Amino acid sequence: MSELDLYAKYLDLGVKLGRSGEDLATWVEDKVRQDMERNDRQIERERKREEMEMQNQREEKEREMQRHREEMEMQRQREEREMQNQREERELKRLELEAKTKKLELGSRASADVAGPKPSYGVQRPKIPPLNDPSQVDLYLERFERHATAFGWPESEWASCLSNLLQDEALSIFLSLSPAEGSDYQAVQRVLLQRFGCDRNGFRSKFLSVKPRAAEDFGTFINRAR
């Protein structure tokens, strides 16, 4: 309602209430002013409410964009890890083939000279990268054991060989073991698996929290969960 309409409304009402002259004019002015102030307050509340809604919308959009960026980064990291795993698997197969070939050569030499010296760890030592991701220590130890078996290392030397490939927290854990435990590969393996959540309890927890990855089909998810 416009200000002119308010004057007309309250003028008519004031006359009906028996007001006249200056009293009527003062009363009408007060009523119109009160209505206009109420209207201004209502407009201000509406304006603030709209600003708040717009601010909430902007913040929600920013949060959504941030979530999208984080998901993209996680996807990129997963793809990089998968590519790295594939490269390491190819390298492992190559080393295993080399080891088998060398074992055949050594077998031929041994048949010719049984008393001849056996190849040592130092001669046969393959190039294995250090443990960089402790969360995958189970896969790393399996890879290490394949190398050790393929190259014929005596298990009594496994713990010593493995210690040269540990770093940071994993190395600190190894150094905290007693000399007897530190020379026992099975003891070292057990402690590392337990510390980095790759034992029975750790895998149970991971299994219960596993979720499908982006663009991952159901069959791939089931195999990864298994």
Rank of each mutant, 00 (worst) to 15 (best):
Arg190Asp: 09
Glu50Ala: 15
Ala115Glu: 10
Pro129Phe: 03
His68Arg: 14
Val123Ala: 09
Asp113Arg: 05
Gly219Leu: 13
Arg125Trp: 07
Val210Lys: 12
Cys161His: 05
Lys16Thr: 15
Glu64Ile: 00
Gly197Met: 01
Phe218Ile: 09
Asp23Ser: 15
Gln194Glu: 02
Leu97Cys: 03
Arg90Ile: 11
Leu192Glu: 04
Gln186Val: 09
Phe174Pro: 02
Leu17Ala: 15
Arg33Met: 13
Ser156Thr: 15
Gly197Lys: 02
Ser120Gly: 06
Lys93Pro: 02
Thr101Trp: 04
Glu98Arg: 04
Val188Asp: 03
Phe221His: 05
Ala115Leu: 14
Gln86Pro: 03
Tyr121Asn: 09
Leu106Asp: 15
Pro130Val: 04
Phe207Cys: 07
Ala187Arg: 01
Glu142Thr: 14
Asp12Trp: 05
Gln55Gly: 01
Leu6Lys: 09
Gly18Met: 11
His147Ala: 08
Ile222Met: 11
Arg41Phe: 13
Tyr185Cys: 04
Arg58Ile: 06
Asn223Ala: 15
Leu141Gln: 07
Gly219Trp: 04
Gly14Lys: 01
Leu95His: 11
Glu73Pro: 04
Gly197Val: 00
Phe151Pro: 02
Arg58Pro: 01
Arg125His: 03
Asn223Val: 13
Met65Asn: 06
Pro134Asn: 12
Val15Asp: 09
Asp12Thr: 15
Asp133Lys: 11
Pro117Glu: 10
Arg90Leu: 12
Arg78Gln: 05
Ser176Asp: 01
Leu106Ser: 13
Leu104Ser: 09
Ser2Asp: 10
Arg224Asp: 08
Leu208Lys: 07
Pro119Glu: 10
Ile128Ala: 03
Arg204His: 08
Leu177Gln: 13
Pro126Ile: 03
Leu208Val: 07
His147Leu: 12
Gln136Thr: 15
Thr220His: 05
Leu17Gly: 12
Ala180Val: 14
Asp40Arg: 11
Asn132Pro: 00
Leu139Ser: 12
Val15Ile: 15
Gln189Val: 05
Gln77Cys: 00
Asn164Pro: 03
Glu105Val: 09
Lys211Asn: 06
Phe207Tyr: 08
Val32Lys: 00
Glu216Ile: 00
Ala187His: 06
His68Thr: 14
Asp30Ala: 15
Lys118Trp: 07
Gln194Val: 02
Met36Tyr: 07
Pro130Gly: 01
Ala110Thr: 11
Ala214Glu: 09
Met1Tyr: 03
Gly18Pro: 08
Gly152Asn: 01
Arg190Asn: 06
Gln167Arg: 03
Asp113Phe: 08
Trp153Val: 12
Cys198Asn: 05
Leu13Gly: 05
Pro212Ala: 08
Leu17Pro: 00
Gly107Ala: 12
Glu71Tyr: 00
Met1Trp: 03
Glu91Gly: 14
Ser209Ala: 14
Pro134Ser: 12
Ser120Ala: 10
Ser205Cys: 05
Cys161Phe: 11
Ser156His: 11
Ala112Pro: 01
Gln84Ser: 10
Arg143Trp: 04
Tyr10Asn: 01
Gln75Asn: 09
Ile128Gly: 05
Arg87Phe: 15
Arg49Thr: 08
Cys161Tyr: 08
Arg67Leu: 06
Glu89Thr: 06
Asp138Met: 11
Lys211Arg: 14
Leu192Val: 08
Glu96Gly: 09
Arg76Ile: 01
Arg81Gln: 12
His147Val: 07
Arg94Met: 15
Gln194Lys: 12
Leu162Arg: 04
Glu82Arg: 13
Asn56Ser: 10
Ser178Pro: 01
Pro212Lys: 07
Glu157Gln: 10
Asn201Lys: 04
Met36Glu: 14
Asp168Gly: 03
Val15Trp: 06
